[in-house]
Nucleic acid binder design. Sequence first.
DNA 1: ATGTGACTTGTAGTCCGTA
DNA 2: GTACGGACTACAAGTCACA
Lengths: 81, 81
Amino acid sequence: MARISAGLDKDGALVNLGVAIRARRKALHLSQEALSDAAEIDRSHMGKIERGERNVTFLNIVKIASALGCKASELLVDSNL
Amino acid sequence: MARISAGLDKDGALVNLGVAIRARRKALHLSQEALSDAAEIDRSHMGKIERGERNVTFLNIVKIASALGCKASELLVDSNL
DNA sequence: ATGTGACTTGTAGTCCGTA
DNA sequence: GTACGGACTACAAGTCACA
């Protein structure tokens, strides 16, 4: 059971963000482990983020984007937000 | 004293985000109160976000962007992120 | 109208496992 | 290499009083 209720994440914003992160990660042929290591975020947490089960903080979005070699805004554009 | 250390917010990302939010809010001639009301976020909390003193979460960024009538990605583009 | 400090509650984020 | 769980700790969310 995810910790984010469908009610809170009305437009699936977190899921879309997670999908965008995963897509960029795969494009770079990185493992979750490699990415979470580069972003200095726990691998378990990163997995939940990709699945849209966690409401990431802004600073971590920036860190992840940076680890993916792109801007945070690009991730959101991918997510249609 | 701000709750976010300069060390954590290396590039002033939170400050830039706050500035972008405030700029858009002013452009719409809204008070913090009106905006925080529209975004369903407490005025006090919103004020701290605008000053870059809080590491806001993704879902709240989306809520604020929505209350500002723009996309979350646009806010980040304004912030150069 | 906004800034700020003090506070409680919820959850982001860590660390350990198992499959 | 990834999903998922339990048990923590750190900190964002949310509220209020007062400047």
